[in-house]
Amino acid sequence: MTKLSFRALMGGAALAVTLGGNAFATECIAPADAGGGWDFTCRQIGKLLYDLKLVDQPVQVTNMAGAGGGVAYTHVVTDRNEDADLIVAASSATTTRLAQNAYAGMTADQVRFVGAIGGDPGVIVVAKDSPFQTLGDLVEAIKADPTSVTFAGGSAAGGFDHLKPLMVLKSAGFTDFAKVKYIGLDGGAEAITQTIGGFTQAMTGDMSEIAGFIKSGDVRALAVLTADPVPGFEDIPTAKSQGFDVEVVNWRGLYVPRGISDDEFNAWAEKLQAVADSAEWKQIMADNGLAPFTKVGADFQGWIDGVVIDTTQLSKDIGVIQ
């Protein structure tokens, strides 16, 4: 009999672990592997939502990598369209790929964008022993021989990280974009590893992914793609100060499924605003090189619609879509 009850206990415990552990918790999907920007968004917002008592159970984070966020997007649109307990990390990369019709025909109006609560400045870095000292050096080298430089980034080819150097090159008058070499890796950390190892000559990414490596001295930032220097990283020159009129900030925010009600949407918007207003979030932004950038609710949705149109135009200009 003891044997039997022991068995029952085991089986029951295992099943309870499988089934019961997450009965009504909010789930946040990070559409990339752990360690990248989307993962960061889910972890931090998820933690604050719980710490600030905006949700009553810890937020569970699911990493769903693939196709630059397309896998998660497809999943949300097709499988979870009415799930009001689901939030998904989003960023400029999401709208970029939507604008380029890169999510297998999915469009930006198939989900609702709740808000952005921070901006992650774009950065271009090289290994510490790289011959390139300024952004100008790098651009000149590419102009002279486009095959001499390979960029590594955390997004797929044609994605936001890929567009960053192309925008810089465009502002410098170089438009043969197809010749610029770029490899997409799973997240910024891997891209940095490849650059430190000398397999790629430069890495493009967001400040939050790179901050630790800049501080440790393994990589050197050539330029930050913001209007003003980023607090905490004042010694990194902006691209503008080096004569390249480019500004690329990767906003960090969330989208939710299309099928939820307006009330549920507004509830998420309020919660996100509360996170944005908290002192904890301001500290997190400062620690991770994020610049303040808050747009929430209907306001944000309208802004996104404009961004998608602009990005589509830009992508056509630089030739990544027809």
Binding site: L4, R7, A8, G11, G12, L15, L19, G20, G21, N22, A23, E27, P31, D33, Q60, V61, T62, N63, M64, A65, G66, V71, A72, D186
Partner: peptide, 26 residues
């Protein structure tokens, strides 16, 4: 029979999908 032995109580409705790691195909 296995259920009776395990004394599993009826769960409300369904098995809820998705804890982490679903996307960790690597």
């Amino acid at each position: 029979a296995a259920f009776r032995r395990l004394q599993i109580r009826p769960w409300p409705g369904i098995v809820r999908p998705a804890t982490g790691a679903a996307g960790l195909r690597g």
